[in-house]
């Protein structure tokens, strides 16, 4: 869109490829203020860095307003929608198909996967592609926790659980859990970015600390991405405490080693 060039200072225009290179970003924001109906002008330099074929997207007031007014959910990632609309613009220009399952935003993919009521279905989705597998691992608390809770009545708890998925599988079929855990230990190393799921070593090393009160020891160590406030963890923990009494399994209820550091 060369006509947009007139809105942008020439030196800004020249600086765009530099900006993206320095910040390792795919796009640079050249202007972020209202000029008529325009709110922002973004620029996408091409990979070979030539400034002639830069792709410029203008964000119109009408595009931004509904996104900003969408504040009914504080967590609503409206910023990702802006990126999405830019992506759509790029696809349209290049005559690529706009939508497929993989091109949906992650939140929509999760919304769809949450409707799979059988864990086997989610596991098969994991087998489809590494990208999906990573997404499912990342949203463990949103997908597997519900399934685990539904399966709670079927089998006793697993002592060395790492994630809600582990716990679900263990309940589903105790013998499979052992095989799976062996593989999982190797596999988890490759997902080193997944620091959200705390390691069981963490649990074991701290399970011997005895200077905490019974109440404090209730803390559950499986993280849930969406619910990470202390209050929520307490609620989850109480449920597990009931379970503990009925099944007599204790190891997953040990407090985190970080606990004492947080509460000195």
């Amino acid at each position: 869109m060369p006509s947009l060039k007139k809105f942008v200072e020439p030196d800004q225009w020249e600086a765009a490829p530099e900006l993206t290179r320095r910040k390792r970003a795919d796009a640079a924001v050249l202007m972020l203020c209202a000029q008529g109906r325009d709110v922002a002008i973004l620029i996408f330099p091409t990979a070979n860095g030539d400034t002639e074929n830069m792709y410029v997207e203008r964000l119109d007031m009408a595009v931004i307003t509904p996104l900003l007014s969408h504040s009914f959910k504080a967590v609503e990632p409206w910023a990702s929608r802006i990126c999405r609309s830019l992506g759509n613009g790029l696809c349209r220009r290049n005559k690529l198909p706009l939508t497929s399952f993989m091109s949906l935003p992650d939140d929509l993919k999760i919304a769809i996967l949450q409707r799979l009521t059988d864990g086997k279905d989610i596991a098969r989705v994991e087998g489809v592609s590494a990208q999906l597998r990573h997404l499912v691992a990342e949203r463990d608390g949103e997908l597997w926790k519900t399934l685990y809770e539904e399966a709670l009545v079927l089998a006793p708890a697993l002592a060395l659980a790492r994630s809600w998925k582990d716990m679900y599988v263990a309940r589903l079929r105790p013998s499979w859990a052992l095989i799976w855990r062996a593989f999982h230990q190797e596999f988890l190393a490759s997902f080193s970015s997944d620091s959200r799921i705390r390691c069981s070593k963490d649990l074991l090393s701290s399970s011997c600390s005895s200077d905490l009160t019974q109440d404090e020891q209730e803390e559950c160590t499986v993280g849930t991405k969406a619910k990470r406030t202390r209050r929520h963890r307490r609620q989850v923990a109480r449920n597990h405490d009931c379970m503990k009494k009925s099944h007599g399994v204790g190891a997953i209820h040990s407090p985190s080693s970080r606990y004492r550091w947080n509460h000195r």
Partner: peptide, 24 residues
Amino acid sequence: VFNIKNDYTKEELEEIRQELAWAF
């Protein structure tokens, strides 16, 4: 059905097949 590219290597695929055997 969803036109998704298989981005696993052969080894990864085998690993996953074994890990997720309970689902397959």
